[in-house]
Amino acid sequence: MTDMRETGRGILREVVGQEYFDKREASTNSFNADARRLSEEYCFGEIWSRPGLERKTRSLLCVATMVALNRQHELRIHIGTALTNGATAEEIKEVLLQSIIYCGLPAGLEGFRVAEEVLASRGVL
């Protein structure tokens, strides 16, 4: 395993939490292993490890991106990681309000719906 992949796996474990990481590990198979390796090595090992942005900022950027791309499954994950990385419910709300303007009302409202589910499940709402 490369050093960058190990770095990425460490960051991934920290931002998604041990429980999610363990589920991900348990569901890795010969079909999805290469995609997960790319995620670990390049997404988390190369990009998330860079010093230019705090993890909270990276998380909030991911929230906005997932709203823009209409990716609810990933949005749930990134709202959770944003909380783990120090974002507040108020900051997430502000990102979602900004997303309504730049991504459109339906996408932004769907973002609010997903965020409310995640925030409630984490005891934040």
Rank of each mutant, 00 (worst) to 15 (best):
Q18W: 04
E94H: 10
S121K: 12
W48C: 09
V124Q: 11
M1I: 09
M66V: 02
V63C: 11
V114Q: 07
L83R: 02
V124I: 15
L105R: 00
F31E: 12
L75C: 05
Q18K: 13
D3L: 09
S59R: 07
T7L: 13
E46C: 08
C62P: 00
S30C: 02
G108W: 00
A33T: 10
V114Y: 03
E116P: 00
G80H: 04
T57D: 12
T2P: 11
E117K: 11
E19T: 11
I47H: 09
E40Q: 11
M4S: 11
N29E: 06
E91P: 05
L12D: 03
K56H: 07
L119P: 03
Y42H: 15
T84H: 07
A26S: 14
L109T: 08
S121A: 11
E19M: 00
A120T: 14
E25I: 07
A26T: 05
L96W: 05
F44P: 04
S27H: 10
A89M: 03
Q98F: 09
R36G: 09
E14S: 13
A68R: 00
A33H: 06
D22H: 09
A115C: 09
A35Q: 13
A33M: 10
V118D: 03
N29C: 07
T81M: 12
I100M: 14
L119E: 02
E116G: 03
S49Q: 08
E41F: 05
R9G: 04
C43L: 14
L125D: 04
N85V: 05
